[in-house]
């Protein structure tokens, strides 16, 4: 049997800006991971990913990333995804500078 499914968000990079974006429940994209829809069920997650992959005019390289529920919305569980919500650690650039 496959491993137990862990909660996921759909994420990608925006086509024009290149920055990280997350799929919202309304089918649109947000630059803030807290707005993302958190999928607890594998089938729904896969369906959302198919929806994302069908939007090559908006995003590039959509994939499912592990996440968990936080007080303000989904938060990352892996450091790579955490960096994507912030930006690089050597300069105040990227999402951390937009907040």
């Amino acid at each position: 049997m496959s491993r137990r499914f862990t909660p996921k968000v759909v994420t990608a990079n925006a086509l024009l800006e290149g920055d990280a974006v997350w799929l919202r429940a309304d089918g649109g994209w947000s630059r803030d991971m807290h707005d993302a829809q958190l999928f607890e069920e594998e089938e729904l997650a896969n369906e959302a990913l198919r929806h994302a992959l069908a939007q090559p005019d908006l995003v590039v390289g959509a994939y499912l990333a592990d996440a968990k529920a936080g007080p303000e919305g989904p938060v990352p569980t892996h450091f790579r995804e955490d960096f994507r919500t912030r930006g690089p650690s050597n300069y105040h650039l990227g999402k951390q500078a937009e907040a």
Binding site: E17, G18, D19, A20, R80, F83, R84, P88, L93, G94
Partner: peptide, 16 residues
Amino acid sequence: KPLRLMNGLYLQLHAY
């Protein structure tokens, strides 16, 4: 993608 890579343009974590 192959066209942009031929011209040195990658897509990285936070940006192109």
